[in-house]
Design a protein around this nucleic acid. Structure first.
Lengths: 189, 189
DNA sequence: GAGGTTTTCGAACGGTCGTCCGATTGAGGA
DNA sequence: TCCTCAATCGGACGACCGTTCGAAAACCTC
């Protein structure tokens, strides 16, 4: 029986609550109950709700990067890595849609609160940098032969992933949307 | 001095509050105060908060369609219409970013509440149908000569618009993001 | 002008929220 | 063993939430 500290337990519980109910319906009491802990423990370890949520974002970002790095093997070509990212998103949407809902929720938080905006911006910048350096390399850019920069194409690529994923969640009965993610490969073809 | 009914005033106030503070921080009291009206008037006219919000979504969708229809002149070619939609999004992001934040917020609501999901899905379906029939026509599809359907390309196109717009709002100091919207024209080139 | 209906108001209700505080517990060093 | 300090707890606080209700006001019809 592994014994994690309360701090960790609270963080897990917070993520679980947000994934289940969404941020808007997640209260500190719910989180504390899910963690099997007194409410005041949250203030003790994370100062306040905002502090806890920022920690959740940070942890989610770390997880994401590890996940991504695990899938993008060094021996792949840039194009293969692009396809791989697409496949990864498709897999998430099918197997673990809550993951994307949390991403959407936290990004939404960032639209209204400056501290969250700064933190989420970092997360997005990390994703973008990964895509820029792994997929839209100088090699691939020269291959494509059009005028767009790697940053532009990365924005386009990730924006497309995000926007299509939202549509897929709004219309889960329409399987065509998830598979239309594959069409995103037009940006590196 | 035009005299709109209270019903209309409440709807305006609700939209204004959401645009200013986001849905999560908008209460019926704020809305009532903004409208210069008693709180109980909201329940009287819209039954409850959900009813009011659904009305807000419906009104926003109507406004959107009128806006779009005004910009897409019948004499334009499909490609021109595509460029026009892109330019329209760029204009919104620069002049009236709250419009997009509201769209994002309401779509986020739809991820967690079934009634909202159904209503927002209708809105998105309307947008998608407009893009499908106006931009990705059979004529253009044949011109492009690749295997994707009009629906797939429309998903890609709108998803890209949405995802890039989010990045632009998270990083308003980075003007390159807004202009990278133009690169979305790769999908019909 | 009287009477009935719709509209509007302010107050109140029961809940839930995030935060704070004093008391209790527990582990580790003197 | 005692002292200290960090960790944990339950309860309380004031604020705000969405909803409801009875009374007042406004409107319309006769």
């Amino acid at each position: 029986m592994l014994e994690r500290g309360q701090e960790e337990k609270i963080l897990d519980a917070a993520y679980a609550c947000i994934a289940r109910d969404g941020y808007a319906h997640t209260s500190l009491r719910h989180i504390a109950h899910e963690a099997g802990v007194a409410v005041s423990q949250i203030s003790y370890h994370y100062k306040n709700k905002e502090g806890l949520l920022l920690a959740v974002v940070e942890r989610a970002a770390t997880n994401y990067h590890a996940y991504m790095q695990e899938y993008l093997h060094p021996h792949m070509s840039p194009r293969e890595k692009g396809e791989c990212v697409i496949a990864l998103f498709q897999g998430v949407l099918e197997d673990d849609p809550e993951l994307f809902r949390v991403l959407y929720d936290l990004a939404g938080l960032a639209l209204w609160s400056e501290p969250f905006r700064l933190q989420v911006r970092e997360v997005f910048a990390g994703i973008m940098e990964q895509i820029t350096t792994e997929v839209f390399t100088a090699e691939l850019l020269g291959d494509l032969g059009h005028q767009h920069t790697a940053e532009t194409l990365a924005s386009l690529f990730f924006g497309g992933l995000f926007g299509i994923a939202l549509q897929a969640l709004l219309e889960p009965e329409n399987k065509a949307i998830v598979s239309s993610l594959s069409a995103l490969s037009v940006v590196f073809k």
